[in-house]
């Protein structure tokens, strides 16, 4: 039986030598968690199923630094590695895969140029093309009057989801669920779905969002944003129908190490790799 994946995420600031892993709440109150290579190695040894590196500086000048981080990591880490931030053209995918990554995640670049998904999936394969979607709730009064959007019922009311770009700094008005379906059509292999409403809050994942996305798409969905406890992870993997759960600070600051989360899930009947 396919196991649900537990994925620590490393938000990397690459402006210092070797980089550093940071975690902020809505880009404020930044805390430093350690060095990317050392943290990734620790998570691998703890039994993480996959590791995501996000370059939060996402600048072209830092591509080389990220490639070096990946190279050093994959000398000792033997689980899949996904890299996001600053991936803009098929060659960027090729370079990251050459450095040792298995997948690249794109958000802003794919929204600006959706053909990138078709081109990249032809060059490196769909399995390496992850689309990052940062979705924010837009509540509506009358669900019947919104033909342009996929309306989801949530405990807080009806809403659709707006795709944001540039790390949450700009909104596009693009419907997140429709966009995800288009990405799948174009050759994306997976969706890394972050709830902007929950990100950094530790209030739990956006279950209605994850569930709707998972039911409407054929490709795997990684839930992200809001994971603050093993119970939250359990919720999104069961009620939210997510294929994987991504979290950052609960792992970084040893609140709930990976083995603790996995034991919790196993006790409740979720298939996990121990």
């Amino acid at each position: 039986m396919l196991a649900k994946r537990i994925i620590p995420c490393l938000d990397c600031d690459l402006n210092v030598p070797h980089g550093r892993v940071v975690k902020g709440v809505e880009f404020k109150q930044i805390r430093y968690a350690g060095e990317p290579v050392a943290l990734a190695t620790k998570y691998y040894e703890d039994g993480a199923d996959e590791i995501v590196f996000l370059d939060i500086t996402a600048s072209h000048e830092r591509r080389e630094t990220m490639a070096d981080v990946i190279k050093a990591t994959t000398e000792n880490v033997f689980v899949p590695i996904c890299v996001g931030g600053g991936i803009r053209k098929p060659q960027d995918y090729v370079n990251m895969l050459k450095a040792g990554a298995d997948k690249c995640s794109t958000n802003t670049a794919a929204i600006h140029n959706p053909d990138l998904i078709n081109e990249a999936s032809k060059v490196v394969g769909s399995q390496a093309c992850v689309i990052g979607i940062d979705a924010k709730r837009r509540y509506v009064d009358d669900p019947q009057e919104n033909d342009d959007h996929v309306i989801i019922e949530t405990p807080q009311g009806y809403c659709w989801y707006d795709c944001s770009i540039y790390g949450g700094r700009e909104f596009t008005g693009i419907d997140a669920i429709k966009w995800a379906m288009e990405c799948q059509e174009r050759g994306a292999g997976e969706i890394l779905l972050t709830s902007m409403d929950r990100d950094g809050t530790k209030d739990g994942y956006d279950i209605p969002l994850n569930r709707a996305m998972s039911e409407m798409l054929d490709i795997p969905i990684i839930a992200s944003g809001g994971g603050g406890s093993p119970e939250h992870i359990y919720e999104t993997l069961t009620k939210g129908k997510s294929d994987a759960a991504l979290a950052a600070s609960i792992f970084h600051f040893d609140e709930y190490p990976v083995p603790v989360v996995k034991e919790y899930l196993k006790e409740r009947g979720v298939a996990v790799r121990l």
Partner: peptide, 9 residues
């Protein structure tokens, strides 16, 4: 889901 992606026993 397709692809079959992840850990299986």
């Amino acid at each position: 889901k397709i692809p079959h992606m992840g850990w299986n026993n």
